[in-house]
């Protein structure tokens, strides 16, 4: 007797394949054919006798009402199924936000093991899946999901930018430094293009009434560049980038700006500037727990032995 092959947890190629929405059946042509057949039969029957014509009229009326009711029921079931899928996606989003990774992984696996009802739901679930994979340090798998999405799906610029950021971070974490550098250059170019477009809009708004949009600066990109500089042994550049981008890091990343403080603490430490490193490390641990920072960036692991973390208050 052969042992069944164990299915691996979050098998990415399988999930990518199985989650493809099923192609729609061409019901339209079947429907049209049936309709023409019914019309021809009823026309023939109507010519046979006045009683038959009355019967055909009554039957066709009932069929019409039946069709309307049937369409209503089909729509109702479709809406119900779509709502259920939306609720699952909302649950996945909540679990990811609350960092309940095992539950999020199980839910996403269950969702992606069968065809999703809409391409949008699949894209959203795959984006969450890439986050979960990165959390489990399966960076190559995360990159393959992100590549699949970026290569095959048309997305709005914000989502695409976020995915590229996630991919660049995963590349850095998995030591694909050449690829990461290229990804960062691409991100810089696209950010610059967005800034140029915005400045054109601002200039244009004086004449044509186009709404000016705020200047686009990416704190996520700044964080990745700081990480790249720390990882490749360029602490001075990391500190320079951090100092220049601190306002947007604070504004856009909120508590995640703790990551940038932790990385800049490492940069100060590499330069032997202990006081500045202590100050930055304290700020980092004020915003994020030490364990979380160590998990995200193994490079800062040594800091907790050398510097004091911010003291969290005792439980209330």
């Amino acid at each position: 007797m052969t042992e069944p092959t164990p299915v691996p947890f979050l098998d990415v190629p399988m999930l990518l394949e199985h989650s493809q929405p099923a192609p729609r059946t061409a019901w339209f042509w079947y429907g049209l054919g049936t309709f023409v057949l019914v019309v021809m039969l009823s026309a023939y029957a109507s010519t046979q006798s006045p009683e038959m014509a009355t019967l055909v009229r009554m039957l066709s009326g009932l069929i019409m009402v039946g069709l309307m009711v049937g369409m209503g029921l089909i729509t109702w079931f479709a809406v119900k199924a779509q709502r259920s899928e939306r609720l699952q996606l909302e649950a996945a989003e909540e679990l990811v936000s609350l960092r309940r990774w095992p539950q999020a992984a199980v839910l996403l696996e269950a969702m992606l093991m069968r065809p999703t009802r809409s391409p949008g739901a699949r894209v959203q679930a795959l984006i969450y899946l890439s986050t979960v994979l990165a959390r489990y340090h399966r960076f190559d798998d995360a990159i393959s999901v992100q590549n699949h999405l970026l290569d095959n799906v048309m997305m709005d610029s914000g989502t695409s930018h976020a995915l590229r950021l996630g991919r660049a971070m995963a590349m850095l974490r998995s030591d694909h430094l050449f690829d990461a550098d290229r990804a960062i250059s691409d991100l810089r170019r696209s950010t610059r293009r967005a800034e140029e477009r915005n400045s054109e809009d601002v200039e244009d708004s004086d004449g044509s009434g186009t709404t000016p949009t705020p200047t686009f600066e990416s704190a996520g990109l700044a964080l990745i560049e700081v990480y790249r500089d720390v990882k490749t042994g360029h602490p001075a550049e990391a500190i320079e980038m951090f100092t220049a981008k601190l306002p947007i890091l604070r504004q856009q990343l909120g508590h995640r700006s703790g990551d940038a403080y932790a990385l800049v603490a490492k940069a100060y430490d590499l330069l032997g500037r202990s006081d500045a490193a202590q100050d930055a490390f304290e700020k980092a641990t004020l915003l994020s727990p030490v364990d979380e920072l160590n998990r995200r960036y193994p490079e800062v692991l040594s800091l907790s032995e050398k510097y004091n973390a911010a003291l969290a208050p005792s439980a209330a």
Partner: peptide, 23 residues
Amino acid sequence: AALLCVLVGPFFGKRFDSTIALF
């Protein structure tokens, strides 16, 4: 109107084609 066509239409005979009205 659709219900009327179904329920009352057949009693009008040839003067009123309920199928067209329903369509």
